[in-house]
Simulated assay, not measured.
Amino acid sequence: MTSGASSPTYPARPRRSRLRTLLPLGVAAWLVLEIWLLLLVADAAGGLAVFLLLVAGLVGGAAVVKRAGRRAFANLSESLQRGAPPQSGGANGLTMLAGLLIMLPGLLSDVVGLLLLVPPVQKAVSAYTERTIDRKLRAAVPGALGDAFQQARMRQPDGKVVPGEVVRDDGPGNPHDADGDRPPLTG
């Protein structure tokens, strides 16, 4: 053993976010609650009733996802025919999420999915999500995606782009230069 050798120091690991810590616990609690509710229903109504509930959820959720997908495709094709930028797909996205939650086996996910199909709940969830995303993008480090999204939002809403090229003639004799000897631009 040598006393002169020092052990390498490692940089401090970044702290785990609260979401990364609590999400696995939340998913595990959700699964336990779903199984417990299915067992309660099976005990009260029988196994066949639980099976029929699960099949109905699968078929109903698939129908909701299919309807939302068709509506999103119709909105996209209509906006492309008009030559306008596509409209926001927030409502269709939440409807698809609701359909996926209904398709998941479990009663609690069915209730949450059915709640997402109610228009006032959809509007509230959509507004909350938009505010949260906007706040996170504003808090992003400058030069990251936050700036790109902010710049994209500043463009004209009609989406018109005029192609062209800017040619500057900064030499002497420029008709826009009054005295003919402008100092060079420094960077």
Rank of each mutant, 00 (worst) to 15 (best):
R71Y: 08
L116A: 05
V162E: 15
V59S: 01
L94A: 02
L58T: 01
Q81N: 11
L97M: 10
L104V: 01
V166E: 11
V166R: 13
E34Y: 02
L53R: 04
L137E: 09
G106E: 06
G47F: 14
A98F: 03
T2S: 14
H176T: 08
G180W: 09
V65A: 13
L38T: 00
G164A: 08
P120F: 03
G90R: 05
M103T: 01
D134I: 03
G146M: 09
A68T: 03
D177C: 14
A44C: 06
Q156L: 04
G60H: 10
N75W: 11
I133Q: 08
G143Q: 07
W30P: 01
R15Q: 12
G113S: 05
G171Q: 13
R71D: 14
P24D: 00
D179P: 01
Q151L: 15
Q81G: 08
L58W: 14
L19K: 09
R71N: 09
A68N: 06
F73H: 12
G60A: 15
A98N: 05
P163A: 05
P175T: 02
P142C: 06
R131H: 14
L145C: 02
P163F: 12
V161Y: 15
L48A: 15
M154Y: 05
A42V: 00
F149D: 03
G61A: 04
A84L: 12
V32M: 15
A68M: 11
A12H: 06
V32N: 10
L52K: 05
L137G: 03
G93N: 13
L114Y: 05
V59K: 04
P163N: 02
L104M: 12
G180K: 04
